[in-house]
């Protein structure tokens, strides 16, 4: 087991920047997810840690050892690839044993480790098959077992669940969490699926255009986005943003009077999550015109506008809503986010 220390790593492809100075510490035994849209640099960062791509600048330490110039095989890590990369010419057994074989592990130990990893992933029955005889989900299990078998100091995962269908993905996610929690392996996990990141990770690093935009626990990221990007990326549907003027250090929305952080002039962006709004039968609120109601089961998702700015709201499922209806809404004022519309960054609540 080891920690990972990434220090101001940059990566250029020609003049194209893929990583613009990324620093990140992953503690011993911690599970960190790199989350972001495609092209944000998350896979590039993972590959730099693996040693599959060399960073342009900066250094990477694993377990206190500078591995920046070491080839992948000398970094003491294991990896699960997006397309599994299960060797098609080897039986499942030999696939799982591959890493141990390369390091010259004794035969009986290899056998024990393979059996243990196979048991963890419930693939004991498949050990003598070839990968072509396996389903996608089973190959995925083999890929994870192969990584676990070497008992790596650091485990890297590159969108390991993205090729599974929805139901299988949910099942594997739960299972993966249980297995990794008991192994307590330091894990760096790349994904573009926020549910995956939220469900699995101790901390999430949101990446955007080659930088880490915010890092924190799933709840922190969800509740206190540090930028419009993070708020708009996390949550399904994402956070609503209303551009509102500040006058006399307050913001008026309908009959509501809201207090943005002190010392702001000009417009601000008010961020509200769809589920942090409720229908105000009485009292203060603002008018929301429904365009499209979508009953989704647990709630009704309303898409509409507030004073011409579009907004999505999740309301209780027992209401009957028609397009064109106007309802009064009230936000949970403890859950409001305030952003600077020019920089896109959060305004500190003092």
């Amino acid at each position: 087991m080891a920690d990972i220390r990434i220090e101001s790593v940059t990566k250029y492809y020609g003049s194209q920047a893929a990583l613009r100075g990324v620093s990140l510490d992953v503690h011993n035994g911690e599970f960190v997810a790199l989350l972001g849209p495609s092209g944000c640099g998350k896979t590039t960062l993972l590959r730099a840690v693996a040693g599959l791509d060399r960073q342009t600048n900066g250094r990477i330490e694993i377990g206190g050892r500078d591995v920046s110039d070491l080839p992948p095989r000398s970094r003491g890590l294991a990896m699960v690839f997006q397309n599994y990369a299960v060797f098609p010419h080897l039986r499942v057994r030999d696939n799982i044993a591959f890493g141990l074989l390369m390091t010259g592990t004794a035969k009986d130990r290899i056998e024990r480790q393979v059996a243990r990893a196979a048991a963890l992933m419930h693939i004991e029955a498949l050990l003598d098959r070839y990968p072509v005889q396996l389903s996608g989900g089973q190959r995925q299990r083999v890929a994870v077992a192969r990584a676990l078998a070497v008992e790596p100091a650091v485990l890297l995962m590159d969108e390991p669940l993205s090729n599974l269908d929805a139901l299988l993905r949910l099942e594997m996610r739960t299972e993966l969490k249980a297995v990794l929690a008991s192994a307590r392996t330091t894990t760096l996990y790349v994904t573009h699926d926020q549910t995956e990141a939220m469900g699995l990770a101790d901390r999430i690093a949101i990446m955007h255009e080659g930088r880490i935009e915010q890092i924190g626990s799933p709840l922190e990221i969800y509740r206190q986005p540090k930028s419009i990007f993070v708020g708009g990326f996390i949550g399904n549907p994402p956070m609503n943003f209303l551009r509102l003027p500040v006058s006399g250090s307050v913001v008026r929305l309908g009959t509501l009077i809201l207090n943005p952080p002190a010392g702001i002039n000009g417009p601000v962006m008010l961020g509200i999550r769809p589920e942090d709004l409720e229908v105000a039968e009485t009292g203060a609120g603002f008018a929301f015109r429904v365009h499209v109601p979508e009953p989704l089961g647990p709630h009704i998702l309303l898409t509409g506008d507030v004073e011409g700015q579009s907004m999505r709201v999740a309301v209780a499922p027992d209401r009957v809503m028609q397009p064109g209806d106007v309802v009064m809404l009230r936000p949970n004022t403890a859950r409001l986010s305030w952003m600077n519309p020019d920089t896109g960054l959060a305004l500190e609540n003092s």
Binding site: P72, R73, F98, G99
Partner: peptide
């Protein structure tokens, strides 16, 4: 797939080793 070769590197193969053990048989 390149990934197969990369997997071999990650799991302890050198460049020529990965070629011999993974690329060649395939």
């Amino acid at each position: 797939p390149r990934e197969l070769e990369e997997a071999a590197w990650v799991f302890g193969c050198s460049g020529p080793g990965a070629f011999r053990r993974v690329v060649m048989p395939l």
